[in-house]
Design a protein around this nucleic acid. Sequence first.
DNA 1: TCTACTTTTTCCACTCACAGGACAAAGGCG
DNA 2: CGCCTTTGTCCTGTGAGTGGAAAAAGTAGA
Lengths: 396, 396
Amino acid sequence: MRRMTARPANAHQARLLKLLRDGGPNSRAQLGDQIDLSRSKLAVEVDRLLETGLVVADGLAASRGGRRSHNIRLNPGLRFLGVDIGATSVDVAVTNAELETLGHINHPMDVREGPVAVFEQVLAMAAKLKASGLAEGFDGAGIGVPGPVRFPEGIPVAPPIMPGWDGFPVREALSQELGCPVMVDNDVNLMAMGEQHAGVARTVADFLCVKIGTGIGCGIVVGGEVYRGTTGSAGDIGHIQAVPDGRPCACGNRGCLEAHFSGAALARDATEAAQQGLSDELASRWETNGGLTAVDVAAAAAAGDATALDLIREGGNRTGQVIAGLVSFFNPGLVVIGGGVTGLGHTLLAAIRTQVYRQSLPLATGNLPIVLGELGPAAGVIGAARLISDHLFSPA
Amino acid sequence: MRRMTARPANAHQARLLKLLRDGGPNSRAQLGDQIDLSRSKLAVEVDRLLETGLVVADGLAASRGGRRSHNIRLNPGLRFLGVDIGATSVDVAVTNAELETLGHINHPMDVREGPVAVFEQVLAMAAKLKASGLAEGFDGAGIGVPGPVRFPEGIPVAPPIMPGWDGFPVREALSQELGCPVMVDNDVNLMAMGEQHAGVARTVADFLCVKIGTGIGCGIVVGGEVYRGTTGSAGDIGHIQAVPDGRPCACGNRGCLEAHFSGAALARDATEAAQQGLSDELASRWETNGGLTAVDVAAAAAAGDATALDLIREGGNRTGQVIAGLVSFFNPGLVVIGGGVTGLGHTLLAAIRTQVYRQSLPLATGNLPIVLGELGPAAGVIGAARLISDHLFSPA
DNA sequence: TCTACTTTTTCCACTCACAGGACAAAGGCG
DNA sequence: CGCCTTTGTCCTGTGAGTGGAAAAAGTAGA
């Protein structure tokens, strides 16, 4: 089913759509308070938006003591698809035009199975969401992939952990399959957009969003806009050297942050500790599950296991050291920590904070909150929905 | 003498002024080719600019085979003052409205003597330039100081190497003294703007400009605009840890980049080497000059002194390591190396390049030029003139 | 219940920026 | 010397947008 989603005809309409998206239903008068337009002009633009079907009239607005007014809201039938492709799992969610999550499902999947297999999975999940009555079709989709993306074309470029994806026309292919506009971005950037839209970063113009999952990446927001760098690889901090002559890394260097701390590194370290008999807690989990992941380390740490806590602290120190450098360089107004290892929680956060507050200059850290992300695994898909809505709610 | 410099009344006029600044004299027709305005509208705006006196008619334009046309140019009497306050010296230059340097003088001076003494010096230098007939007065001035600045107010904040400057209202005070608008910024940001306007970074939107002088700093340009960070301390990379548990630094930490490589550190290392008799070349210079600076090291290196070359290579490696991290994070389209130690030239550059190209990922370094600044000590003052002209050539 | 006051919406006339065509001025070229 | 091109000037039409007046529809108090 093809849906003919209209686009705003001018900047005023785009502005109005974003106000309605971020502020929910509003009367014309309330919109007038937030936008710098005369009542007459506003009425004209709203009427045009009503004609396109992008927005609809919707009951009476709460009275402010005068003539009753009708609410205007984004068409409640609009649906966006948010897709977050991780290294080891896929998240898919449906939102309405106000970016409220209507349904969210997760499925384990190795990204290395390649774009064709992954897309099959994504489409199956999207179909499932449709089948459960949440959507009849999609008006747009945002996709996050765990690697650098040539943003304008929506094509992954030289992604280290995604063999087979290099140069694959993700945007084009998915747009074809779904029959709607698609935008593609790095998963970390989408997490940053998610936390900016609905999470801890709502009021901050310049911030960093560090995602510690299978790998480590960092979303950079400058003046409210995601910064992607010259070739789309900005924020690729996993291969910054954290330990001189440290562990060998898949990238060919030694001592990369990612080699010393990440979901993958943590799992390996924990396994080693369990095998060496350093931790009964980890050893028993190893036997039970036939392997260890970051989740096991988190659980062991929560149970007070000293080895697990040490691993987290050690990794937090390394990460904090790198972040301290980034803070000195970038002087953000906020640092958000998120990703799969958020379960490591405050032990990790404390270690990172200690390093940053100790190593960076007071002027940069003086009023710098370092916090965990608020949205957890939803950040990516919300960010994806936000990405496509930003695109569709801009003049064509 | 107070000069009543007009300001553009709207964005079109601002645009025209910047075209004339960056492209020199142009006929109305040529301007029309570069701006998206009808000929009639263009004529009106040009006429208004002529009325304000900001631009003047100036002879005939080169014929393109039709009716002859008059050139329009920025008022040749306009004068900007560019001031670059370094840690150990002050640069002052006069430019015309096209930012061509008409005169440039340098005077050694320790910034630690405080704002009052430094301003006395700056005003004396400005008076000297005036006396030599280069200017009758100034229409605006840009000032660079070696420390973080709260940009909107033009006030240094917590500058580590500038005791006595914290909170001093530089912009206000100098505006009073000079009788013209003043803008203040970090010296490194101005160097970046200088190289962007007239140097190697003319065509690049996102780049880094690393200045290695008495200290080390980095100008960050995002989308053609200088990024200053939340508190104005962005680019303060001198205190990023380059050596774990390395040398103690004035900031209280250990292993800061600045403690291991900078003009000051280099002078100290060279002195040590001379005293230990590791290098005859350096020792003889030490005796001759009664001390050593980065300039001596550069000269010794140029003469083939192995110790001097080692010092430079070692420092370049450290710096390159930090820059490699920044490149991974920021993914710039260009890295410019400048500042006092540019004299160390290609030995330094080679060491930096080696580290960056080895440590950062290919996608970020693939097409990344790392070059020396083109303007040398003029970059700062040109950047300062550019700063104030950007301000004055924007709608009031 | 009636009156006075608000809030909101709709309608209309007026302003202003701007585009684009017509025309004049001033050159080159065969 | 005539024709074409380029440039500058004038003039009018158009459409965006403002702001006031009036109508519509409510609340609060006498």
